[in-house]
Every structure is written in C-alpha cells, then in structure tokens.
Nucleic acid binder design. Structure first.
Length: 801
DNA sequence: CAGTGAGCGAGCTTCCGCTTGACTT
C-alpha cells in the first residue's frame, strides 16, 4: 500500500522531489505526454465537433501500466506536471488514462524545485483547469489539421514524403527570404579612412576614424591630399558616464545562442550536454522560456559574490520574461548549487557549466560603470572630421564575471583608452590609411540565430527548437554548411609623412561558417505554400492563434468553436488547391544553347534539381552542383554542367573519366571512384597521369583498410566502429563473440545470410534508393528492438519485487 | 557516396510538444 503517489514529468525531477518529501510519498515520472492523437490517421472526428481520438503513445505503454498499478493502491494521487498548457493537459491525460478518481486526485504546481515551494504546493492543491486543457487540445488539433492536411497536398503537387507545419514551414520561409534578400543585395564599394594621431605634448598615440564613407578612389585621394597639408585640431571633447547592466540568466534560447557563439555548439549539441548536466543535478531544467530565479538561488548567489568579490559587487535582481508567448513553467537555467564553481565531466560539459554559472552569477552582480569619451578632430580645409571614441571602465561590476557576445561583432576596437586631450589641442597625424571595402549583405542565419528569430516571432517552444531545426534539415529544405569566400584584390592608400602610396592587398570576402542555406526544394515548397496558404505562412499566424488559445484558457470561447472558424475556410482551400493547382517543379527557362539551339532549363526532377537541354529524343540532363540554386543559376553555369563527365584516356584497358558529383570532383575508373585532391587538382584540366596517380594512391590506402578478402568478393574491412563484413555493397555487423581476423569464408556467409533474412522480415518496405526510405527502415527496426527491450526490463522489475 | 531523369500503380509519407534512452558501419 502506498500513501501518496506524486507524478511529475521528468525522472530527474522525481528523484529530487522524493528526497524533499520523505518516505510517505512515492514520486514517479510520466516522461512527458503519455497520450496523443492517433498516430496513423487524422485522429480527429471532424464530423463530430472535432472530437479528438487519443491513444496511449507506443513508447509510454509500460509507463502507463506501472503508474496505473501504483495509482490503484495509492490513497492520494498528486498530479504535479508543469504549470503551463502542456503540463495541464498531461495532468488531464493522466487522470483519464489512469482512470483516477476525483475524490483522491489532487493537482499541484510549483515552478521551482525547492523544498519550500513543494511543501507549499502540497498545502494548496487545486483541480485540473479544464479551460487550460482545452486550450492545449485546440493547439494540438490545430497543428494536426495543418500538418496532416497540407502535407498530402505537397505529396501530390510537389514530391512525396514532404512535410508542412505551422512551425517548420515558417522556419524554412525565414531562411528562404533571407537568401533572396542576399541575392537581391547589390554590394557597394567604398573607402574607409582610419588614422593614427599623437598628442603634441606627450606624443601619446591614439586611433581616430572618419565616419563618412568615400564612394570613389578619386574622392578618397582628394581627402588625403587635403590631410597632407592640413592641421588637425580637437574641436570637441565629450565625456559622459554610462552604465551597463548584466543580461538575465539563461533560457533555452539564449543558452543555445551563447553556446553557439562562445563554444561553437550546435543547438542540439547544447541541449544534449545540458541534459547531462541536468540529470546529474548540476543545473536546473534546460527547457525553459523563463528568466525567473528562486529566492534561494538569488540569496546563495549573493553569498558567493559577497564572499569572493566583496559586497560592492553584489546586486540582487529578479528578471521578468519579455519573450512572446512564454509559459514560464520553470525557472531560468542556472546552477543548482551556486557554491559549485566547477564540475566533473568532459570538456564540453565543463565549458557549458562554466557558461551557465558565470551568466547566473553575473546576473546578480552590480552594474558596470563606464566613462565614454568622444573626440572630434577638425581637419583644416575640409568639412569631414575624424572621430575617436574611448571607454574607461570606472568600476567593472558584472563584467568581471561575464561578457555577452553578439552576432554582429566586428572586432571594433572602440574600447581603447584615449590619452588626455583638451578642446583646442593640435594633434599630429602619424599615419592615415584608406582601405577599399564592400558593403555587406544581411547575414545568413545560424541555427542559434534562427532560434532567436523564431522566439521573437513566438514560433516553437524551448523543447522543439532543436528538433525543428533537425527536421527541416532532414527534409532537405535547408542545409547547414560552411562555404569558402572569394578572394578579392583591394586597394589601400597610405598617407605617411609627405607621400601617399597605393598598395594592393588580397582579402577574402563572404566566408560562411555553419550557416543555413535553403535548398531548391525549400524554395519551391515555400513559394507553393506562400501562394496557396498565405494565412498559415504569415509570421503572425502563431501569435494570433496564441491569442485565441488564451481566450479558450480564460473560458471566454469554446475550443471547438475556435477550431471550426479556422477549419472551414482552411479545408475549402485544401480542396481548391488539390483541384486547381499545377504540379510544381520550380521549372525555369535559362536561355538557348548556342551549340544546338535547344532550350536550356532547370527544374526539380526525381533525383533533385537538374538542368536540361532540349526535349524528346535528344534531351540531355545534368544534376546541379553543391551550392548551386535553380533560382540563381545562369545560362553559362548551366552549360558548364554538361562538360562533365570528361574522358581522359585509358588505364589498364579501362576508361578513365573525370566527373563532378554531389561530393565534389571525382575520377571514375573500372567502376570505382576516387576523389580529386582539393586545392591541387582541377577537374577541367587534370591530366591522365595525375588521375592514374590518384587511382594508385587510393588502392594503397584501401589495402590498409582490408583485413581479409575472400575469393567470392566477401571482404572484412576496418571501419569507423571496428571491423565489419562488406559484400555486394552492403555492410554486415560481426557479432562481438567472434574475432574478425579468424573468420572463415563460410562463417561470413552465414552472418550475411542471417542478417539478410532478418532485414527482409523486419521491414516490409521494399528497398528503394531514396534517403527517406532508408531512414524509415532504420526507425522501423529501431522501434521493434526498443519494444522487445522494454518488455524484458519490465519482466525483470516484477521478479525483483 | 559519385551513372539516373519513362510511366503505371500499390502502399507509404506528414504535424507540434512533453519527456528519455538506444545505438550507429
């Protein structure tokens, strides 16, 4: 018999709470949502006032069974899921699925995991808030309707297996629109003038720049000529104090941004590392949109600061959340114990912890006090002045602990110290340089800056930022990659003493590191959705839906009514689009092939974007190269694609040719492929000799990979995860009980047969060559393995008890 | 990993938000 059963969402939370509550309370976790709309079909009875059809999620069957058994013998069941829309719904689903009784079920909430907060919650139970639950049901049903009615339109009109949704489609649109802004951007050349001066009295050097940009070299030279003879007089000195305040402690979004900027983490990597820190009790919950801090946390931060840095550095602050649609079920992300300055763990874990620690501590520290000085230097004979600015830190305050970084940081050395200068002083020029520059297009999104943008639009939630970004990459809508910039020659003019010299420098422009680029598919799908479903693609759609959901939560409107108002025009639009719209391949005519006179065009084909010359019998195709977009491809670039594969000659009686594939240029010989050496080989000019050399190098390195080769083509190879068997281009795992070096051909044969028979029974999907099918196959086998494992562990549990 | 790009038709795909593991060729 159990006295009290408390159900929370996270197992780590359950462990902590159990410690606070003592032996009368059994604390278990639901592992998030336990029920959802039917996985297979729409799961909504449209005819019957949008009645949702729920089922226990496949991976929660065991959890539900266990909770049900415990609930049956408990005197009181406490539903302690989070205090937000989703949490309320979890409580309700638990109530329904576990068949709880109203008389001994209590709903409690707390948004900080402290003993006081939990005991207080136990003292103040309430009932499940049905209005809030209904708001969640409306949210769920809306997302299912959008996703499961729009996606099939894409299957018919664009390509099978594509997806659309309230969140993901808008996220892709952000990337597509940014790319178009960049394409439309006309870069402008200008000259930027910087100077180094010294004071007459102390001969102290300092930097000053001209804020205006010069449009031509001639104008720049004119200015330098004036400077040559000019006197430089300090016409204004302006000093004003300023303060800088620390940023609030981390939320999911800000943690992802800072970890990306400071540690180079991807958003999913940040979440994985944070999860580990959370599970080991080092930090509070990592999926939160709140900047709230518990009183205990504020007090203990104060104690640490006063003890280590002195009282002057301490300033307790509580922050309020600004972001749109925040639900604030949790605290901000902070260390659980402020006296733990460092933790055990790998390098990434330590680095992320340090970031979280410092950010939290800094948030409880005093403002930094600065003194900013701006100096204007008049140039005799010109209206254009030089400006110098300096910053002196009077009191470092929180800056001692933490400096936030920003996306738009150009290593501006604006925080330099200025020498003592007074109005009317004459200063001497040491060196004046004018450098040719280019205006910059708007920056492409990184994963983290996309999350930031989504958060400001109120799209997505802390728990979905990382998965959403993964999804749109998996669907092939966007690609994360780094691209090398282009080297340009730029001119620099230098005025030193009495001569002006001109130099030519090389500088690389447009280098992109881990940025998000749209694919052709992303652009075609975005355009299709934008033209047929402008309502859903509107950046305000989610915000407006949230307002309606708030009304439902307040009890001002019935949730089915809200859904009904959305659904009828929406569904009509679906029907209309299915009937009237054309199949969309993003086709575009580029021009005429000067050789054949045939039309050159691009479109998305069965295997992706391609270029095409002519029609009918004489048609020729060529796939687009990495980094090329149908939208911006020129006729010349398209014609270039048809120059490969190029025949080089013969080697060992087989033809050697060079081509360009998805992973760059390659040499093909006797059905095997060898990559060209980056930076050395040029596919357009590579000789037969070099190609043969590359083939022989590849053979040598392949030899080292081989452990054993059998006559019938079975090979034992050394791979990334240890030895494996390769046969007919398929790979097979070697059971851990066997030694790779000692395997015979027969033994390999049996392993292959065994694996092959397993594969055909576990996946009914016919083997296709597309990525999507390969992936679904994987998940299929995965879930079956999981299911059997779950059963096993459950059995062990019952025998133990 | 890198050739490909017709057409038919069966059977499949898909959403967003809550949570953790499992396991890689």
């Amino acid at each position: 018999m159990i006295e009290n059963l408390v159900i929370v969402e996270s197992p780590a939370k359950a462990k902590t709470i159990e410690r606070f509550l003592g032996s009368n309370y059994t604390v278990k976790s639901s592992f998030g949502h336990i029920r959802d709309l039917e996985k297979k079909d729409l799961g909504i009875d449209i005819e019957n006032n949008f009645q949702p059809k729920y089922e226990i999620s496949a991976d929660k069957k065991a959890v539900v069974k266990e909770l049900k058994a415990l609930a049956k013998e408990a005197k009181t069941v406490w539903l302690a899921s989070d205090e937000d829309r989703e949490g309320e719904a979890i409580a309700w689903h638990l109530f329904e699925a576990l068949k709880l009784k109203p008389e001994n079920t209590k709903r409690i909430v707390f948004h900080e995991i402290t003993k006081d907060a939990i005991l207080h919650a136990i003292q103040n139970p309430r009932n499940i808030d049905r209005n809030l639950v209904n708001a969640q049901q409306a949210r769920r049903v809306l997302d299912r309707l959008v996703g499961f009615e729009v996606s099939p339109v894409l299957w018919k009109k664009v390509k099978p297996s594509l997806s659309a949704g309230r969140v993901q489609s808008v996220a892709v649109k952000l990337i597509v629109e940014r790319e178009r802004e960049i394409n439309a951007f006309k870069e402008q050349q200008y000259y930027k003038v910087n100077g180094i001066f010294e004071t007459a009295a102390e001969q102290a050097e300092f930097k000053a720049d001209v804020e205006e940009r010069f449009d031509t070299k001639e104008h720049t030279l004119e200015f330098l000529e004036i400077c040559k003879k000019a006197q430089f007089t300090v016409s204004q000195v302006e000093t004003k104090p300023s303060v800088r305040k620390p940023s609030p402690p981390f939320t999911t979004s800000t943690l992802q941004q800072e970890a990306s900027r400071k540690l180079g983490f991807s958003v999913s990597q940040t979440m994985a590392v944070a999860q580990k820190l959370y599970e080991r009790g080092y930090i509070t919950y990592m999926r939160t949109d709140s900047v709230n801090l518990s009183d205990l946390a504020i007090r203990s931060a104060k104690a640490v600061i006063c003890q280590t840095l002195g009282e002057r550095y301490s300033k307790s602050r509580q922050f309020t959340t600004q972001s749109k649609g925040a639900q604030e079920a949790h605290e901000a992300i902070r260390p659980t114990y402020m006296d733990k300055t460092a933790i055990e763990g790998d390098r990434n874990e330590q680095a992320l912890y340090e970031l979280i620690y410092k950010r939290m501590l800094a948030s409880q520290m005093a403002d930094a006090e600065l003194e900013k000085t701006n100096i204007t230097i008049r140039v005799s004979g010109s209206e254009i002045p030089f400006m110098a600015s300096g910053e002196v830190v009077i009191f470092d305050g929180f800056l001692r602990m933490y400096r936030e970084s920003h996306d738009d940081e150009h290593d501006d050395e604006k925080t330099t110290l200025l020498p003592q200068i007074n109005k009317g002083n004459v200063v001497n020029r040491k060196l004046i340089t004018a450098t040719e520059q280019y205006t910059q297009h708007p920056p492409r999104y990184t994963e983290a800056s996309l999350v930031k943008k989504m958060e400001t639009l109120g799209i997505g939630r802390p728990s979905t930022y990382a998965p959403t970004i993964t999804t749109i990459q998996n669907r092939g809508y966007i690609i994360k990659e780094s691209r090398e910039g282009v080297e340009k020659q730029i001119q620099q003019l230098e005025l030193k003493e009495d001569s002006i010299q001109v130099f030519t420098l090389k500088k690389t422009f447009g280098t992109e590191k881990k940025k998000l680029f749209p694919s052709d598919m992303g652009m075609v799908v975005t355009d299709f959705l934008d033209s047929h479903f402008p309502n859903i693609m509107n950046y305000n759609f989610t915000a407006q839906a949230e307002e309606a959901l708030d009304d439902i939560a307040e009890g001002d409107i019935e949730w089915q009514k809200m859904i009904g108002q959305f659904y009828s025009p929406f569904h009509d639009n679906i029907e209309k689009t299915l009937k009237n719209s054309e199949r969309n391949t993003g086709a575009r005519v580029l021009g005429t092939d000067p050789v054949s006179g045939e039309t050159v065009s691009v479109r998305i084909g069965r295997f992706g974007p391609m270029a095409q010359i002519g029609e009918g019998e004489k048609v020729r195709y060529a796939g687009l190269r990495k980094g090329q977009l149908m939208e911006t491809l020129t006729l010349a670039e398209a014609l270039e694609l048809f120059k490969f594969p190029r025949k080089l000659g013969m080697f060992e009686d087989k033809e050697v040719s060079v081509g360009i594939g998805r992973f760059g240029p390659y040499i093909k010989h006797n059905n095997s492929f060898v990559s060209l050496k980056k930076g050395e080989d040029d596919p357009a000019s590579i000789s037969l000799e070099t190609a043969i050399q590359r083939i022989e190098e590849k053979r040598e390195s392949d030899k080292n990979k081989q452990i054993k080769v059998f006559a019938n083509g079975i090979m034992i190879l050394n791979g990334r995860f240890g030895p494996y068997i390769s046969y007919e281009k398929k790979n097979f795992k070697i059971p851990k009980t066997l030694k790779a070096e000692e395997l015979t051909q027969e033994e390999c044969q049996t392993i292959i047969e065994k694996e092959n028979s397993k594969k055909t029974t576990s996946s009914k999907v016919k083997s296709r060559t597309t990525k999507a099918s390969a992936k679904s196959k994987k998940t299929n086998t995965k879930t079956t393995v999981k299911a059997t494992k779950a059963k096993k562990t459950k059995k062990e549990d019952t025998t133990d008890r």
